[in-house]
Design a protein around this nucleic acid. Structure first.
Lengths: 244, 244
DNA sequence: GCGGCCGACTAACATTGGTTATTTGAGCCC
DNA sequence: GGGCTCAAATAACCAATGTTAGTCGGCCGC
């Protein structure tokens, strides 16, 4: 069980896209079971698992990843507080990748059995949950297109994306800064670049005074120029409130 | 309206993952409105559109793509007959990319209004449609991981994927061949490689006798070696039949 | 307070893949 | 049947990125 305030970030994410009724909030809250904490570096779920709950991250950053046999890791998504991190396991059943905690995470768990009965009784809420997974897919497509960009552009683009996604749930500080618990190595794993090249590209971006990045804190200095530098267009995040 | 046989490829796709009742088939068939033909090179939907129908491809290959301002094109997915090609527009509303016909396509259209009421009355079928979009997302993640691979591996991997996906709906000929209406340029757009490099990589693969590719026809010569060459593991396609 | 580890950073070098330009051959239109 | 156009193929050259092999500084545990 949970009270409404604890799911506030998630409801804000939904409400950016559609109206959510009080009854729907109650129904979703009733699906929550318990909270779990995962230390930085730990896994929320592992490839091959067949979880019987899905997890909504209340606090902390996490990454969706897969490790190759040669030891290299590919990160396919970065998740921020308010993201329903393995909602798709409700239907896919077996995890085809892992989700790891980039920083300490606190997580609300939703048993699949309850979510499944929610889909039987609350079609509109079901569509909104479906929508969240569709937006994740849209982000994947955007990352796929990013492959064409140069390394600095890719980095700038990721920062733009996180800035907007964190903004939705009020996680951007008044000075336009936000926490980003990513090492340069992890950033490379997300963008398909070597750590060395990430470092080189960051140096270059640094000289352009678009943002600063120190102590796991990114601060946007010139949003418009940064967006331009990254060719960032937030349409793929579907931030429009309309009936779904 | 449509009869069952015309949606047979789609039902086979669903039935690989779960049981579909006769009543559910009837309900889905009732959602279909009309058929449309699109010539090779034409678009099924365009970026920025707000379609009020979703389209299931009955025949022909299509690609999900976005054109960059500099004229380059990034293909983010390749769709085969039986794929519900813009089901996500039901919830995302505005298209953030286009879908183009790689070969002549015939398409069944499903008005959003009917699909929406389907989600109100048929929760299990809704979950199966949701599942189809989740598998698309899973394929996106696989393509994202592919960025780490070398060009020949990427090409081999794509061929493996299409071989398996086409196999589901019985579209592989007895001699292990299938139609692939992709130019080398389009293949490059899908994998983020230049056409020249695709050509180079194909030459190399050719010398390994894993498959042939002539006249838009790919023929698998040595499936096990090809899978190994591509590090292909079909788990991400979720080909397991179980309750969802 | 010291040793060890991890992340940031640097340098030199290797390689993959991109660019541009040109050729060839197959289909197609009139 | 000649001249299109388009895809495949090839060559020469170039830029982006990877690899290897470090150094350096901060933080943590004992």
């Amino acid at each position: 069980m949970a009270d409404e305030t604890i799911l506030a970030t998630f409801f804000r994410k939904l409400e950016v896209r559609d109206v959510v009724t009080a009854a729907e909030k109650v129904a979703l809250i009733a699906c929550a079971s318990d909270m779990v904490s995962v230390p930085a570096g730990g896994d929320l779920v592992r490839e091959g698992d067949r979880p019987d709950t899905s997890m909504l991250v209340l606090d902390g950053f996490s990454s969706r990843y897969r490790d190759a046999p040669d030891g290299s890791r590919q990160i396919t998504a970065i998740h921020v507080p308010g993201d329903f991190v393995d909602l798709h396991s409700l239907l896919l059943r077996e995890m085809d990748h892992s989700v790891g905690a980039l920083s300490a995470c606190s997580v609300m768990r939703f048993p699949h059995a309850r979510l499944r009965s929610l889909t039987e009784t609350h079609p509109h809420l079901t569509r909104l949950l479906w929508l969240m997974t569709l937006i994740d897919a849209s982000i994947h497509r955007e990352w796929l297109s990013a492959a064409a960009r140069t390394a600095p552009e890719q980095i700038a683009h990721l920062i733009c994306e996180l800035y907007v996604r964190l903004g939705i749930t009020g996680l951007i500080a008044p000075d336009q800064s936000f926490t980003l618990p990513l090492t340069q190595t992890a950033l490379g794993e997300a963008l398909g670049l070597s750590a060395v090249h990430v470092n080189r590209s960051l140096q270059q971006l640094r000289s352009e005074d678009l943002f600063t990045w120190q102590n796991q804190t990114v601060r946007i200095l010139d949003w418009e120029s940064l967006k331009r530098r990254a060719s960032f267009d937030d349409r793929y995040l579907h931030l429009v409130r309309e009936p779904r």
